[in-house]
Amino acid sequence: MLTACPVILLRVIGRIAATVLAALALAACGEKEEPTVLDNPDLIVFAAASMTVPLERCAADFPEAGIKLSFAGSDTLAAQIRQGVKPDIFAAANASIPAELFAEGLLGRPTEFATNELVVAVPKGSPVNAVEGLARSDVSIAIGSETAPVGIYARAVIGRLPAKQEDAILANVRSEEPDVSGIIGKLTQGAVDAGFVYVSDVASSAEELRSVALPRELRPDVTYAAGVTAETPEPGAAAAFIGDLLRGGCQEALLDAGFGPAP
């Protein structure tokens, strides 16, 4: 049964090689025909997973550079930068992680460019209407991991509740996800009853989820900050993109997605 495999495999490899060669040839031609591609640098942007929807929408319209986006939890991205991975820009879901990287000399002075609001997200038909509802024993909850901003904010909120509620809610935590995408996934798949995420995340899954606002006295200040990495070869274009996050097309996309303007 397997005798035909090597022949097929060789053929497949041959085809892949031909495709790659053709693509390379095309790329080479493209460069000659469109010198603008060479003029415009590429910027690698490490961005918090909660900005996936707006940044994917606005990145293509940024005039001064091609934007390559890499999304994950802000803490994971920071760990990669500390291990020597070199993006051009780091945009985090809080101000403290970029501030730490700035203090370590890995990032230029961070700029606060947007705000967000932490909420409790629940499926549309859920009976939960207040954060206190999460203390009931039959509610399962997903939150961010201890080092992810979305998890740090959630723990801060839970910590401000009366001790009894705090313990009950923490006991209901069933998964500690590395970033908001994981929490939203668990919610939309019905694996948990509630999760602490940003109001903008609920807006992008509005068909399945609704948000329960936190009372003002519990609400943490959620501020997004971005910086240009210390060793970027394109500091000018990178600074321009941070300007775009603060007041250009990307700021508009962020506002459309439910984010707030910079504080």
Partner: peptide, 26 residues
Amino acid sequence: LMFAGALQGVTQTVPLAIFDRFARDF
């Protein structure tokens, strides 16, 4: 991670613990 989630002692196996530690303590 996708199917079972990550919670210490319940679903956080060694590979998941490695990923969790990556962000806090290399």
